[in-house]
Simulated scan of single mutants.
Amino acid sequence: MAEETPYVPRLAIGLVHYPVRDSKQKTVATNITNFDIHDIARAATVFGVEKYYIIHPMKEQLMFVDRVLDHWRTGQGSKFNPMRKTALGNVKAVESVEKAFEDWNVPEALTIATTARTEWAKHKYSFAELRNEMHVAKKPVFMLFGTGFGLTEDLIRSSSGVLESIRGAPPKDYRHLSVRSAVSICLDRVMGPW
């Protein structure tokens, strides 16, 4: 008897560089880093993410992403490291969160913000609850990750809900992960085969 193909939930992620907050809670745009392009793309590929959007309003920053992607998809990098080419296949740079939603075009998707500022949330999802929504209820999800000091209040309030924050080990409960690490942990918890 043939083995049944397991269900893979529909998931897109967005790395938001604008609108995000700085240390004084002002709305700013942060710079895109080469590490975030590569490392998050690799985690997204491991965990079956359909699309990874890098969101920034500045043309120069989007052009930087496109140059990196071109190098690894069609340039010398594609011959040097085919695994990297595979990982970067579903990455797209866009000008806004709205453009990312429009491009993915899954209107019924839950929009889940990641933040430590849960007081702004419509609904607070535990990892187990969101995993159930994705794997059992089969709801598609668009998950947003903020750079800088996190997503803005407006963006969090406009989301379907927020995902519980990643907690550090007691007694310190240190919570200052790189966004690359946070994305990997979140993807493993909601998409991992455990």
Rank of each mutant, 00 (worst) to 15 (best):
residue 60 E to F: 02
residue 5 T to P: 07
residue 158 S to A: 04
residue 91 V to W: 09
residue 14 G to C: 08
residue 87 A to Y: 14
residue 116 A to C: 04
residue 39 D to E: 12
residue 12 A to I: 10
residue 83 M to G: 08
residue 16 V to C: 02
residue 32 I to V: 14
residue 39 D to P: 05
residue 165 S to R: 07
residue 28 V to I: 15
residue 67 R to E: 10
residue 115 T to R: 02
residue 41 A to Y: 10
residue 172 K to M: 11
residue 149 F to C: 14
residue 123 H to G: 01
residue 29 A to P: 01
residue 182 A to F: 00
residue 151 L to D: 03
residue 52 Y to F: 15
residue 70 D to I: 02
residue 66 D to Q: 14
residue 163 L to R: 06
residue 161 G to S: 00
residue 101 F to C: 11
residue 182 A to V: 02
residue 120 W to S: 02
residue 51 K to V: 08
residue 36 D to Y: 12
residue 101 F to W: 10
residue 19 P to M: 00
residue 189 R to V: 03
residue 102 E to Y: 07
residue 194 W to S: 14
residue 160 S to V: 00
residue 51 K to S: 13
residue 47 F to I: 11
residue 186 C to T: 10
residue 100 A to P: 10
residue 156 I to M: 05
residue 103 D to G: 08
residue 97 V to P: 04
residue 72 W to H: 04
residue 171 P to L: 01
residue 16 V to Q: 02
residue 150 G to F: 03
residue 156 I to Q: 06
residue 182 A to G: 07
residue 11 L to N: 04
residue 147 T to V: 05
residue 10 R to I: 06
residue 140 P to E: 09
residue 174 Y to E: 04
residue 172 K to E: 15
residue 136 V to I: 13
residue 168 G to P: 05
residue 148 G to Q: 03
residue 161 G to M: 00
residue 52 Y to G: 05
residue 184 S to V: 01
residue 19 P to Y: 00
residue 77 G to N: 11
residue 179 V to P: 11
residue 159 S to V: 00
residue 24 K to R: 15
residue 124 K to F: 00
residue 157 R to V: 08
residue 90 N to T: 12
residue 3 E to G: 10
residue 62 L to E: 07
residue 165 S to H: 05
residue 114 T to C: 07
residue 18 Y to G: 04
residue 69 L to N: 06
residue 72 W to V: 02
residue 73 R to M: 11
residue 43 A to P: 08
residue 175 R to D: 13
residue 43 A to C: 13
residue 97 V to E: 06
residue 82 P to H: 14
residue 106 V to R: 09
residue 38 H to W: 11
residue 146 G to F: 04
residue 165 S to F: 10
residue 167 R to E: 13
residue 31 N to R: 13
